[in-house]
Design a protein around this nucleic acid. Structure first.
Lengths: 188, 188
DNA sequence: AAAAGTAAAGGACATTTGTCCCACCTGTAA
DNA sequence: TTACAGGTGGGACAAATGTCCTTTACTTTT
């Protein structure tokens, strides 16, 4: 459930030195910092080298809905860059992070000039579509108990890594419901 | 809610004659025909020139979950082609359709050789990610009544175009619930 | 037009999830 | 140690949705 894309990260790390100065910048990010703010312009793409971030949409009523957790090698900002639109979601560091930042013009240049880079971006987007599709169809056709069971099975340390509040936003439920299901699972 | 991409369709139609014979094939498709079957290999990308299709995941328990309705200019099969994987969803014609079909090798060739084509595909994928993200966050943070009200507002002839069964699969609810909400909305 | 068969709508109850609130735990300051 | 504050888990009831089955409406056949 924490998405990764090591193939892309490895590619960037291997080629980082071939690119001219300033193409790829390494940045440290504090926990809680927003890499992308909702409804604002995005001027660079970031590839995660270390740490975890959440990508979420926040509503007027104060509730958040988490779309994805991003880990190693995942990329943020490319959608906004391609659509040439303001961001529709926010991205926030859940842990201290290191990211590789590629500014807008460099990104566009790499997209047109580097076929392998271009293909990585195509695959990465295809992966995001597929992930969302399978995730949402799964949650719609399974009970909360089944969904949580699967998540805890895939990732036993889930509750140590992700806070309950974030888990609740990810599942689109209330804290009360999460507690209820966790109690049921524990009692079994 | 029925997605379209006329920019891409226009581009293909304008360039169709510049491409060598066999690059773009026009096909007629009967209502009910599956353009893509779930868990099978996909050997071509199809751009919709006429008609409407549903893209859906079906579960072992017999329930379907509709991810998107595709209309004019929308593209199917590109995700599978890029991931080089079997299809994770099925696509079925809801009306008689005409599609422009580009076989695997031609598609890959266009992707690498035609920068504009490549950019259209990048944008199209970014659009699919964004659509799914906003759709699912909306349904999670709004009641069924709000969601349906919005849908009927955006598309007053919704129930003439999309069958109740399909609407139910799209919303991830039961027919009973849909009827209940429709009655409430009618009574208001 | 009447009868029979089929599909759609809705009533009644069960289950799930949300809302509201209270009890308990933990840490801190007096 | 006590008193207080903030946070967490859970009880009780409300609201939403699903399941099951009856009723209604619509077709088709005779």
């Amino acid at each position: 459930m924490i998405r990764t894309n090591t193939a892309f990260l490895d590619f960037i790390l291997a080629n980082q030195n071939n690119y001219p100065e300033g193409y790829v910048q390494e940045l440290s990010i504090n926990k809680g910092h927003r890499l992308i703010r909702q409804r604002s312009s995005v001027n660079a793409v970031s590839i995660i080298k270390e740490g975890i971030a959440k990508c979420f949409v926040y509503q007027d009523d104060g509730t958040d809905f988490i779309l994805e957790f991003f880990g190693l090698g995942e990329v943020v900002g490319e959608i906004e860059m391609l659509n040439n639109e303001f961001s529709f979601a926010a991205v926030e560091a859940l842990t201290p992070m290191t990211v590789l930042r590629i500014p807008r013009d460099r990104f566009n240049e790499l997209l047109t000039k580097d076929k392998v880079f271009n293909h990585h971006v195509l695959k990465l987007l295809a992966g995001k579509v597929k992930y969302k599709a399978t995730r949402f169809s799964f949650t719609h056709t399974h009970t909360l108990e089944q969904t949580l069971t699967k998540m805890l099975n895939d990732m036993p340390d889930l509750l140590e890594v992700i806070s309950k509040k974030d888990l609740v936003s990810y599942l689109g439920i209330t804290e009360r419901s999460l507690n209820r299901i966790l109690k049921i699972l524990k009692d079994q």
